[in-house]
Amino acid sequence: MDLSLFLDNLWNARMSLLAGFGNTLLISLVAVILGSGLGVLVGLALSYGNLATRFVLRVYTDFLRGTPVFVLILACFYVLSVVGVDLSAFQAGVLALTLFCSSHVGEIIRGALAAIPKGQTEAAKSIGLTFGQTFASVLLPQALRQILPTWVNTATEIVKASTLLSIIGVVELLLATQQVISRTYLSLEFYFFAGFVYWLLNFLIEQAGRAVERRVSIPQ
């Protein structure tokens, strides 16, 4: 392995790799933010919705969680265009990851809400809070603290799953790397480099998650 050759090529390819990395970040960020927002609603409806709502969302979450992300991405890209919804590869990929994220967040929110003692809701009711106020002030803050570690884990899964968007032609970090490799033939070096970048990104996400966890932890 010729290190200076690799470093030269890395320097030359920096803009395209950076653009790919930027896309990876953007895809992950949008999917996690939209997916989490949607997931809170899903978890809320799974916990408190009527029978029909719960049934529909149960099917939704179980289906999405039981399907490979890869299949979801292909479905969003190819199937939707058949039914007349034309999304770009980028949009289809983000949609697939958002849905994937929402099903996971929905399920962990449901679990966290179910774990909160009934007395919390009763105490909130007894001081005259409506259900909406109880949820916002009493239940959600406790549920969010509880799901934080699992949620951070979901975020890192989304980052990893974003590599699958390369299949439908979204130039995120992996595809950008492959393009560089096809010019330079330095496959080992660049794959190793990409792997390192993914690892570093997820490592930072996990550290940030731990920092937030410490910050919001309830003094005992």
């Binding site: 919390q120 009763e122 005259g128 002030s137 603290r145």
Partner: peptide, 29 residues
């Protein structure tokens, strides 16, 4: 909800909100 607030209730298990200070617990309602 409005009618519930006409009575106050203290529970066997206290049921304080664990993520709020004593002061915030009392202020919430």
């Amino acid at each position: 909800a409005r009618q519930r607030a006409m009575t106050g209730m203290a529970f066997q298990q206290f049921n304080l909100f664990p993520h709020m200070t004593a002061l915030k617990n009392v202020m919430l309602g």
